[in-house]
Computed example of a mutant assay.
Amino acid sequence: MNRLAGHRRTGIVAGAVGIAFGFLLTASGLGDYYTIHNGLLLRDPYMYLMIGSAMATTFLGLVVLRRTRGTWLGGALTLPRNRVQRRHIYGGAVFGVGFGLGATCPGMTVAMVATGGLYGLVVLAGLLLGLWLRGRVEQRAAPATAAPTRRRLADTAARDA
């Protein structure tokens, strides 16, 4: 199979998975602020049941992928085995605080915006601003001679995966 056909197939599968994920996320009610809010206040177990079912589905999917020794796209299944770093703890804490205060995470924010939720648009604007700000901070911290190249970015992504 040539490289272009492989990329096309990957794009089609990614698009189909994205459509299914978005549909199911909004159909499940997880794009609704009050569903998340009530779950975080421990008033309704629905959100936790959905998370549990997602974890079970992931577990079963990984079992199948390990037995077949490959993915639908023909690639080998490789799961990262990295040590936890300080930045992971900080990132998790920031994500948790944002999830608690905003009663939404990035996926749910997009679902809110897609279904006409103004609150989701505000959170999405904050997310994008935060991502932009992080990029600016990272650029200022990097030495001027170390401009990122595709190779360096790929090496970094492989190391962090």
Rank of each mutant, 00 (worst) to 15 (best):
V63F: 11
Y46H: 03
L73T: 14
L49G: 12
T78F: 01
V13Q: 05
R152G: 08
G130R: 11
T156Q: 13
G18N: 10
Y34M: 15
H88E: 10
I89Q: 12
C105G: 02
P80W: 04
G116D: 03
R8V: 15
F99S: 05
P45E: 11
T104M: 11
D160N: 13
A144V: 04
V17Y: 03
G39A: 09
A154P: 02
I19S: 09
E138C: 01
D44K: 00
G22A: 05
T57W: 08
A76F: 04
R134T: 11
Y46G: 02
T58D: 10
H88W: 11
T26K: 13
G91K: 14
V113M: 09
G31V: 11
L30G: 05
Y119S: 02
A54L: 03
L133T: 09
R3G: 08
V137A: 01
N2L: 06
M112K: 02
E138Q: 13
L40W: 04
R86C: 07
G11A: 14
L41A: 13
L121V: 06
T104H: 05
V84P: 08
A20Y: 02
I89D: 13
G98C: 12
I89Y: 04
G31S: 14
Y48N: 06
A14Q: 10
L41F: 05
L40C: 06
V137M: 00
Y48C: 01
M108G: 14
L42E: 09
I12V: 15
T58K: 14
R66V: 03
T57Y: 09
G31I: 09
G61S: 04
L118Y: 09
M50H: 08
G70S: 10
L101R: 13
Q139N: 08
G15H: 07
R66Y: 06
A161K: 06
G135L: 04
L101V: 14
N2H: 12
M55H: 04
R152D: 10
A146T: 08
P80E: 02
L131E: 10
L25T: 14
G74L: 03
T35H: 08
V137P: 00
G92V: 14
L127E: 15
F95E: 07
A14F: 13
G98Y: 04
H88V: 03
L153D: 04
Q85F: 00
G102S: 13
Y48W: 12
A147G: 04
R151S: 05
R8W: 15
G39F: 00
M47D: 05
L121K: 09
M112A: 11
M112N: 02
Q139S: 07
L129M: 07
R3T: 12
L153A: 07
T68I: 14
R159P: 00
Y34V: 10
R159W: 06
G116V: 07
L25V: 06
D32M: 12
L65H: 09
D160M: 08
Y90I: 15
M47I: 12
A157W: 05
A27I: 02
G22Y: 02
G117K: 09
M112W: 01
A154I: 03
G117P: 02
Y90C: 13
R151V: 05
